[in-house]
Design a protein around this nucleic acid. Structure first.
Lengths: 133, 133
DNA sequence: ATAAAGGTTCCAGAGAGGGGAAGGTCAAGG
DNA sequence: CCTTGACCTTCCCCTCTCTGGAACCTTTAT
């Protein structure tokens, strides 16, 4: 199957698939005309990548997960460890964003938002930077 | 004041300050020796940038906010609009990450995580990609 | 025969800087 | 006076994950 078919069935843009080949995540065969020829197994890997990326795993995470995916002997504990580390990162990001949300929504609430120039948001942003702890 | 002082008092690395000058966010004067000479007003702008970036505003957001910051006549409503749009983006990201967290933690819970190869996480990731609605 | 729809490669750019080389300058110490 | 070390300068390449476009080739349909 050609790259267009692989793209529509994996959920990844063709451009992205070519990029994944570039960085060695997939290794499709080639037809005599030079077109990439994807096998079922490569298509599965592409879907795997699409889902992993959608869950926010980095490319390097994906490389690790793919290796584990292809290793019939691997322990599920190895996979779980990667997943759990990623879950921690996700939770850290959520915490971070929530903190931003609090700060920003306080600033917004304090601002009249009318035609007058006085603005607590800008005042808040111009305060001395917090300790870079 | 030199860039090192400006860096330590604004909370931004010197590299970042040079970059901000490159893209026109700050315009420090120069000493005769070629060193950047920051005035108080530029230092305030750098602190403003540091805080805005820490709240996740993009550089372009910062450019807008900085222009509003410097415009004594601007309406606070203009600032509030930028801030509110950004708050919406933050909230969307939080929603997104929470959804990832749900999916991932379900997968992790289902996985024994021992020495055996059977792994629901990889199985979950290898399913057909969801409709790209 | 031709045109459209696919495929190929390569180059450039995004955002937001970071790393490090090669070199100029400044202040202190011997 | 000379050196050492800490600054500062510019410059270019690297990151990460693609995305867009140009120039070109192949297949399919009309």
């Amino acid at each position: 199957m050609n790259i267009g078919y692989a793209a529509s069935h994996s959920g990844l843009p063709a451009k992205t698939i070519r990029y994944y080949e570039d960085i060695g995540l997939v290794k499709p065969l080639r037809d005599t005309n030079g077109y990439r020829a994807f096998q079922e197994s490569e298509l599965h890997k592409l879907s795997f990548l699409a889902r992993s990326r959608a869950l926010g795993f980095t490319i390097e995470d994906c490389r690790t997960l793919l290796a584990l995916y292809e290793d019939q002997e691997r322990a599920s504990g190895d996979v779980k460890m990667v997943a759990r580390q990623h879950l921690e990162k996700i939770e850290a990001k959520i915490t971070d964003l929530k903190s931003m949300r609090e700060t920003l929504s306080h600033l917004i609430e304090a601002c009249a938002g009318d035609h007058r120039p006085d603005c607590p948001i800008l005042k808040g942003l111009s305060k001395v930077a917090p300790e870079t702890a």
